[in-house]
Simulated assay, not measured.
Amino acid sequence: MARDGIDLSELDEFTDRLIQSSKEAKKTQRKFLQQQGNKLKRKTLAQMRLSEVNELTGNYKSHIKRGKVWKREDGAQAIRVYSNAPHAHLIEDGHKQLVNPGKGKGNGHGVIPGRGIGHKPKDGKKDYVEGRKVFLNAYKDMAPEYGRACEEAIDEMIRKI
């Protein structure tokens, strides 16, 4: 190419490095998102302890998981932290308090067949349990830290080019 007076060898070398770095960037992005997902999971578990979700909530703690990295419809990669416990939405969002009618006299355990699941509490007792918003609060705590980590990761990828 030097015969025309323009040498594009450096430009070709730079484009080759850009192509190679874009292939490496996919792996780096995936690893970065997995690490951030793990951090969000730890923050969620810490938030669960702070919001005083007690041990009587079944397997709520053990069902909090980090999902896989996936591609959204707009082409961006994403990861999520979720709970696959069947009662997680009740703890997160709140619910109406129902009292189990029980089997005759006694401590109120069990369901009398044909009577349904329960009834609302009487005598001025609280009839709605507020949600703990564990995942929302963990997300809010993680957002600024995640922004800084993204900036650092982008700067690191640019330095490698």
Score class of each variant (00 low, 15 high):
residue 36 Q to E: 14
residue 93 D to T: 10
residue 129 V to S: 02
residue 39 K to A: 12
residue 14 F to T: 13
residue 1 M to L: 09
residue 57 T to R: 12
residue 20 Q to A: 13
residue 118 G to D: 04
residue 115 R to Y: 12
residue 28 T to H: 12
residue 74 D to H: 02
residue 97 Q to P: 00
residue 97 Q to L: 10
residue 5 G to C: 02
residue 57 T to P: 00
residue 77 Q to N: 14
residue 102 G to E: 04
residue 72 R to F: 03
residue 110 G to Q: 08
residue 144 P to Y: 07
residue 14 F to N: 06
residue 40 L to T: 02
residue 143 A to L: 14
residue 25 A to G: 11
residue 19 I to C: 07
residue 10 E to A: 13
residue 101 P to I: 01
residue 96 K to F: 10
residue 78 A to S: 14
residue 123 D to W: 08
residue 112 I to H: 12
residue 87 H to Y: 15
residue 114 G to Q: 07
residue 87 H to T: 07
residue 135 F to R: 00
residue 158 I to W: 03
residue 109 H to L: 13
residue 18 L to N: 07
residue 87 H to C: 05
residue 76 A to H: 13
residue 148 R to E: 09
residue 149 A to P: 01
residue 70 W to T: 14
residue 60 Y to H: 14
residue 70 W to K: 15
residue 95 H to T: 02
residue 38 N to M: 11
residue 102 G to N: 05
residue 92 E to N: 04
residue 147 G to H: 11
residue 1 M to I: 04
residue 112 I to T: 12
residue 5 G to F: 02
residue 9 S to F: 06
residue 125 K to P: 02
residue 158 I to C: 05
residue 72 R to N: 13
residue 52 E to G: 03
residue 23 K to R: 13
residue 152 E to S: 09
residue 85 A to D: 08
residue 14 F to W: 09
residue 129 V to P: 00
residue 112 I to Q: 15
residue 10 E to G: 13
residue 115 R to M: 13
residue 108 G to P: 03
residue 8 L to F: 14
residue 142 M to K: 07
residue 70 W to R: 13
residue 69 V to C: 13
residue 97 Q to W: 03
residue 106 G to A: 06
residue 34 Q to G: 08
residue 140 K to V: 07
residue 112 I to A: 08
residue 61 K to W: 06
residue 155 D to W: 02
residue 57 T to A: 15
residue 79 I to F: 01
residue 117 I to V: 11
residue 51 S to V: 11
residue 68 K to N: 14
residue 7 D to Y: 05
residue 137 N to T: 06
residue 110 G to D: 05
residue 5 G to R: 02
residue 42 R to I: 12
residue 73 E to H: 09
residue 2 A to W: 03
residue 102 G to V: 03
residue 129 V to L: 04
residue 145 E to S: 12
residue 92 E to T: 01
residue 37 G to H: 05
residue 157 M to G: 05
residue 50 L to T: 10
residue 153 A to H: 05
